[in-house]
Nucleic acid binder design. Structure first.
Length: 204
DNA sequence: TTCGAGATCGGCT
DNA sequence: GCCGATCTCGAAG
């Protein structure tokens, strides 16, 4: 894994859909666990009603309005973390949600973090991916282009266009029809598509 | 295999 | 207060 190269900052200073597509096959590393990204989802910042940045900057989403190549880590549903990589023109607040991947290094460590899970399920889904890698809010704002960062993104083997598939985003209640979810065709580590389902109100 | 509900809490209206 | 870029388990087909 040491021979893989860091992806430099300009990679992220491009339109979000291009960055998302090129992140497929890239390798996310946190300490001793490495994951090859097989599924990502694009969020187009302030103009995208499904984006956390849609209603403007807040303390939580502040990182999205900063420079590209930084990680936006947020907490949701009272129990899950998810990771995004900020990209696009600065202050546009575009980001790519990392949805799933294949553990290619440190698999023993990942298994300990997700006991009982099959190997293909270790990082299958955005919240599972953060568990397998040990990512939490402390990494919010981390610069993934720096060699001395705890969280880094490295080049992987390129994924040819014919292996890239696109479809609707998962779990969002607005603009869900945009085909901004991308994954590598035939990968068993890609999460199964489930349309957004509003939850029933609680009752006694 | 598919579906529905619960868990659990921070952020924003 | 309300609701979420989710996951897991249990029940039914």
């Amino acid at each position: 894994m040491g021979q893989r190269q860091l992806i430099p900052r300009p990679f992220y200073d491009r339109p979000v859909l291009e960055v998302a597509r090129d992140l497929l096959g890239a390798v996310l590393v946190h300490h001793d666990v490495a994951v090859r990204l097989t599924e990502v989802e694009a969020y187009a910042g302030g103009h995208d009603p499904a984006s956390h940045a849609f209603r403007g900057p807040t303390p939580r989403n502040a990182v999205m309005f900063g420079p590209g190549g930084h990680a936006y880590v947020y907490f949701t549903y009272g129990m899950h973390f998810c990771v995004n990589l900020v990209c696009g023109p600065e202050a546009q607040a575009s980001a790519v949600l990392l949805r799933a991947g294949e553990v290619i290094d440190g698999i023993d460590c990942a298994r300990l973090r997700r006991p009982g899970a099959r190997d293909r399920d270790l990082a299958r889904g955005p919240a599972r991916l953060t568990v397998a890698l040990g990512i939490d809010r402390a990494l919010d704002g981390a610069d993934v282009t720096r060699a001395d960062s705890p969280l880094r993104v490295l080049r992987g083997d390129p994924v040819p266009d014919e292996q890239v598939r696109r479809g609707p985003r998962v779990g969002v209640s607005s603009a869900a029809e945009l085909p901004w979810r991308m994954w590598i065709d035939g990968e068993p580590t890609v999460s199964t598509y489930r349309p957004h389902t509003p939850r029933k109100p609680r009752s006694a």
